[in-house]
Design a protein around this nucleic acid. Structure first.
Lengths: 177, 177
DNA sequence: ACGACCATGTAATGAGTTACATGATTTC
DNA sequence: GAAATCATGTAACTCATTACATGGTCGT
């Protein structure tokens, strides 16, 4: 840890368009769920902190038409912070595959239990792969429209390749177990 | 979170052989580093907690030959706890790919910066893939000797498939950027 | 009226990292 | 005698999840 990813995700989203905390949560769930998630309990305090740091400002607070709603905008300071972070090379992936942990210690388990772990894993990830493929094929058509669509497509493609690898491994593992 | 993985990793290791905290750290770094890591600041307090819970006992404490050293052993309670955990199906992977986050928000970056991110990612993971392949080929020869070796091999194979996917994606991404 | 959704926030808790503090043994 | 490795532990801090607390709007 050490680097607060939620902070940069919020800056990244606000760099696109002004949003409320609720909007930010939606954007994350829709577009980033494949490789990032955050709850309100993380988002609202981070927004508060970012305001204190001068990275974002609260431009609009309406409770007239609809429920209370605070809209935030990224500042110049925030943009610089985001840009600096974007340029830092990524040193390591932060992956903790619980299924591998279980497999590694599975000496205790019988074949059926191991197989059912693998099959469950397979099923879950096949569904995810299908979703990603759908997403990618929708994006393919509009990829040339903007850099954002292209980057979005690249993240979907990453998911596809990784999930294909999961399924290939599951096939092989079922035979070896 | 909620489920303390370090706890089960320690139980899993002690289920194999009696170890000290220092040994456990070594086992994790050598065999599990691909998908798990833990520092001493996590290991020692967890050992203490596991003793309190009756999952493990401290069998040997020597300061005669060499520095202070405490060896722990798993108890029947600990074995049951481990077994129960092993049987619980894994619901989701816990992956947070920082590179995808950066790519997703990379609208700000120029092509060179994006390419250098991808190339760095590629280089790093090519090295890791080579290590995994070496590990796997060593394990292939002794796989039939024990269930543990086979399970170890399966985790290495998982790493290989996933890293191959990373590299394939990087190839494709470089063209599309 | 009820449920779905919009909307913001705090408090408690858990999990993990980093830095700190200490000291022995082995190897060069 | 310096550096590497063995060895244990605590304290401060950060990050994230879950549960709680509150209340408005819109459609049926």
């Amino acid at each position: 840890m050490k680097e607060n990813k939620t902070k940069y995700v919020i800056l990244g989203i606000l760099n696109h368009e002004d949003c409320s905390g609720y909007d930010i949560k939606n954007r994350i769930d829709v577009a980033l769920s494949q490789f990032f998630s955050a709850g309100f309990g993380q988002i609202y305090p981070t927004l508060k902190q970012l305001v204190e740091e001068g990275m974002i400002i609260n431009t609009e607070s309406s409770s007239k038409n609809g429920p209370e709603r605070k809209v935030y905008q990224i500042t110049k300071t925030g943009k610089i912070e985001l840009d600096n972070w974007l340029k830092i090379p990524v040193e390591k992936e932060d992956v903790r595959f619980e299924i591998l942990l279980k497999l590694f210690f599975a000496g205790n388990l019988n074949k059926e239990d191991i197989l059912s772990h693998i099959e469950y894993f397979e099923k879950r990830n096949r569904l995810k792969l299908e979703k990603l493929q759908k997403m990618a094929s929708e994006l393919e058509g509009i990829m040339e429209e903007s850099v954002d669509h292209k980057n979005y497509y690249l993240t979907a493609l990453f998911g596809i390749r990784v999930h294909e690898a999961y399924l290939r491994w599951a096939e092989e593992a079922k035979i070896l177990v």
